[in-house]
Design a protein around this nucleic acid. Structure first.
Length: 116
DNA sequence: CGCCTGACAGACT
DNA sequence: TAGTCTGCCAGGC
């Protein structure tokens, strides 16, 4: 294997590429992003990359949520309420539970090709 | 160099 | 339906 760490940087770039192409009104889970990035099973690493950029990049991290339809604690990017406002502003539907309507707003890579 | 933590996910009870 | 445990992988101490 490559003595130098070449795989991880590529992994990070792949994730940023996937997240960056999530359309408005849609959300994707960490597992999906990891899968589309070509690294299935690394959902945690996706979240780790997000926390590392902290929104410094052009990545719509508020569109990346977990399978529960919720997002990380407020200290992540400014507050869970911020996420809701941003997503609702983009057309994402929310449930009374304060969670995202996954079945409705969950993004698919194929969808951004066929629809829209 | 080893242990613990973590923006997660999926399966089991 | 909800709560609990394990698996994965990298970073921090």
């Amino acid at each position: 294997m490559e003595t130098s760490g070449k795989g991880y940087p590529d992994f990070v770039q792949a994730i940023k590429g996937v997240v960056a192409k999530i359309p408005q009104g849609k959300v994707a889970t960490y597992g999906q992003v990891a899968q589309y990035a070509g690294h299935i099973g690394k959902a945690r690493e996706v979240g780790r990359v997000m926390s590392r950029i902290g929104g410094a990049e052009d990545l719509p991290c508020h569109r990346v949520v977990n399978q529960k339809g919720t997002l990380a604690p407020e200290f992540v990017f400014g507050g869970e309420q911020i996420q809701r406002v941003l997503l609702e502003s983009e057309g994402v539907q929310f449930l009374e539970d304060g969670r995202i309507n996954m079945s409705r707003s969950l993004w698919s890579e194929d969808e951004q090709i066929s629809l829209f």
